[in-house]
Design a binder for these strands. Structure first.
Lengths: 209, 209
DNA sequence: AGATGTGAATGAGTTCACAGCT
DNA sequence: AGCTGTGAACTCATTCACATCT
């Protein structure tokens, strides 16, 4: 069963908001109230969920805990993905340390960098290995995913090395378009573009400076 | 003239790729070759650009430098936006230091944090002030945008304080949905969700562990 | 010839409105 | 009565195909 990109994104948000409801001790919720609370669309929630079968109870709503389990399973978050962070610059170090990144379904098992000064350090409990050992690190740790926080120039080559080493997916933070192969899906995140997009929506004031 | 969200996103990518072409010394390019190089759609490039008037020359293509200037102007990147980073945790510190984030049209002018141990430090050339002085920092530095890298619990309140202080837009990295006002646009970036989305596309192997 | 600019066609995604269950 | 599940209507976005210009 295939999920379209916008739906996939929403399902992740649904899961996040359900956990929030669960913490608040809510065990059942209607699409209407759910939507009101988290600024979602009730019709869309119903349609998104109905796509996988009848999760709700007519006249009542959705059972929070049950739905969390179902969504976790649908999104394949019912296992743990082992992650290597490639490039221990500012961003890479932040990911290594960031709780909320390495937890639950994701575990950062190692970092690599070219800088000998960084090799051997422990950053947020994550050991840093030399970049030349990347393939070995991937195999030793049964790494599933790579996070690319290397300079733009190195991104394509690093992606290819990760593919070669047997990684199954790559999250790329370098501001370049990487040529990827379908067997190893690539997701791009460009932080600068988020700033640029936001800038466009800023209320316009006086002439450019 | 309004731009739809997907188009806006592409225009930013176009600008990035044009700068890349410029560095390679290419002064003129056809939509076809441009698309081939960066894995874009030629028809879409033409449609996106035509929306703002005739930027190209029939039989020839687009003039790289001219187009960079036009896009920079359209995207309102022909000025500098002053940014405050709120929350000097792992992510906040990474943004303060990250070259490529604070450069060109964006300048990180200050950071704030609640932790007295961090106050007074300089991180990546950015001075850290106490969170209670947020409003003052915004006014003193004529801050345009706020970057929220605070814990989820503090995000809503911080957004409101930023609005009150006169910030014009907010980029939120906290994993919560903030209730925003239309005058101060909000853009959410949830790094965890990117990992989750990527995980969904990983080639399926054996049963969940 | 060769590339842009664009209306028309197609496709994708969202919202509506209500039938149908509890 | 209340809320889900869903086909139908609608809006938005992308692709096609070609007239148009240099």
């Amino acid at each position: 069963m295939s999920i379209s990109p916008p739906t996939l994104n929403r399902l992740c948000l649904y899961l996040r908001s359900l956990k929030c409801l669960q913490e608040d001790g809510i065990s059942t919720i209607s699409s209407r109230e759910w939507a009101d609370r988290f600024d979602l669309s009730a019709a869309q929630i119903r349609k998104d969920l109905a796509h996988f079968g009848g999760f709700g109870v007519r006249g009542v709503g959705y059972e929070v805990e049950e739905l969390i389990l179902k969504l976790t399973s649908i999104l394949r978050l019912d296992r743990q993905y082992r992650v290597v962070v490639v490039g221990m610059g500012n961003l890479g170090r932040a990911f290594a340390r960031h709780r909320g990144f390495s937890r639950g379904s994701f575990l950062v098992v190692a970092g690599v960098d070219e800088d000998p000064a960084k090799v051997g350090q422990k950053i947020g409990g994550v050991e840093v290995r030399h970049a030349r050992e990347l393939e070995q690190v991937v195999r030793e740790n049964q790494v599933d995913m790579g996070v690319l926080t290397v300079p733009a120039e190195a991104a394509q080559e690093t992606y290819e090395r990760l593919v070669e080493a047997g990684v199954k997916g790559v999250l790329n933070f370098a501001p370049v378009r990487i040529r990827s192969v379908p067997e190893v899906p690539l997701k791009d995140v460009d932080l600068r573009i988020y700033l640029e997009e936001l800038a466009y929506y800023l209320p316009f004031d006086e002439a450019p400076s």
